[in-house]
Simulated scan of single mutants.
Amino acid sequence: MKTILDEIVAQKRKEVKEKQQITSIEDFRNSENFILPVISAKASILDESKSGIIAEFKRKSPSKGFINKDANVKDIVTGYETHGASVVSVLTDKEFFGGSFEDLQQAKEVLNIPILRKDFIIDEYQVYETKAIGADLMLLIAECLTKDEVYNLAKTAKEIGLEVLLELHSEDQLDKVNDFIDLIGINNRNLKTFEVDIEKSKQILKQLPQDLIKVAESGISDPKTVKELRKAGFQAFLIGENFMKNENPVEAFQEFTKQSK
């Protein structure tokens, strides 16, 4: 049975083919952002003056449709940084999440903290694209990549200076972790049932390499959960919908951060 992830990956393959007809990897290499040094997400997360939260700018989700269609990127991400975000994540997938490169580039104009490009990276072309649009790190989703694909994409990212967040959903994906990964994300949500299981995430956490930054992802809506996950050993927390569904995402973030300390 075809899943939403299968649909997204098929769409990405189509997009990459179309984009390659217009812009080359060499064009990316010659872009202004490509030569700029990245801001380290690892260092920002370990900075104790910040919250450890990767605050996400997200307009839409495949399951819920638009959650904040007309949100102002610059206002929201500036507020995130002001109130202690360690990293800002920006969705760049248009078809399923209503995102764009413009959203990320507008965030880049005003932020002094790292930017994560949140998208479905399945081709080397997108790695170069990620650097060219101004991101500091990129997401790789183990669920839709083979072990070799994770290795090759992460290796290319490191060669051009990007940091890499690898997202795992289950213990059987642990063999996809390699030396080019900087941060490991564990998605608390089961992609088949969509249930959130923090205890399962804690079990996977115990099996991860000690030297990697550990990120808890998805289904975090209570500051108490952050406290619990931090105690278990997670150092960062990727949270988006919980803030973006509010009329004022910045206020929601500020209040959540205060309560999660």
Rank of each mutant, 00 (worst) to 15 (best):
residue 227 K to I: 12
residue 76 I to H: 00
residue 76 I to T: 07
residue 161 G to E: 07
residue 32 E to D: 13
residue 80 Y to W: 06
residue 62 P to C: 02
residue 179 D to P: 04
residue 56 E to F: 01
residue 130 T to V: 11
residue 31 S to L: 04
residue 234 F to M: 04
residue 57 F to R: 01
residue 249 P to K: 00
residue 49 S to T: 15
residue 35 I to A: 12
residue 31 S to A: 04
residue 105 Q to S: 09
residue 129 E to H: 08
residue 39 I to V: 13
residue 243 F to E: 01
residue 150 V to H: 08
residue 174 L to H: 07
residue 146 T to A: 04
residue 5 L to M: 13
residue 48 E to N: 15
residue 142 A to W: 06
residue 206 K to A: 15
residue 226 V to C: 10
residue 209 P to Y: 03
residue 137 L to N: 08
residue 255 E to S: 15
residue 260 S to G: 11
residue 28 F to K: 09
residue 92 T to V: 06
residue 246 N to Y: 03
residue 115 I to T: 04
residue 117 R to Y: 05
residue 228 E to T: 14
residue 237 F to S: 06
residue 64 K to H: 12
residue 37 P to D: 08
residue 247 E to H: 10
residue 187 N to D: 13
residue 208 L to V: 09
residue 149 E to Y: 08
residue 138 M to W: 02
residue 49 S to E: 14
residue 62 P to K: 01
residue 244 M to W: 00
residue 143 E to D: 14
residue 231 K to S: 14
residue 60 K to V: 02
residue 28 F to I: 07
residue 198 I to N: 11
residue 28 F to E: 04
residue 233 G to E: 09
residue 224 K to G: 14
residue 114 P to M: 06
residue 217 E to P: 09
residue 122 I to C: 15
residue 120 F to G: 07
residue 246 N to D: 13
residue 91 L to E: 02
residue 228 E to R: 02
residue 160 I to E: 07
residue 15 E to G: 10
residue 36 L to E: 14
residue 3 T to K: 03
residue 129 E to P: 07
residue 241 E to A: 12
residue 134 G to D: 10
residue 85 A to H: 01
residue 165 L to H: 11
residue 256 F to Y: 05
residue 238 L to T: 06
residue 47 D to I: 07
residue 73 V to M: 11
residue 174 L to N: 12
residue 39 I to S: 02
residue 207 Q to K: 15
residue 98 G to C: 03
residue 20 Q to M: 15
residue 155 K to N: 14
residue 116 L to Y: 00
residue 44 S to Y: 13
residue 137 L to H: 10
residue 63 S to D: 12
residue 1 M to L: 12
residue 30 N to Y: 05
residue 243 F to C: 04
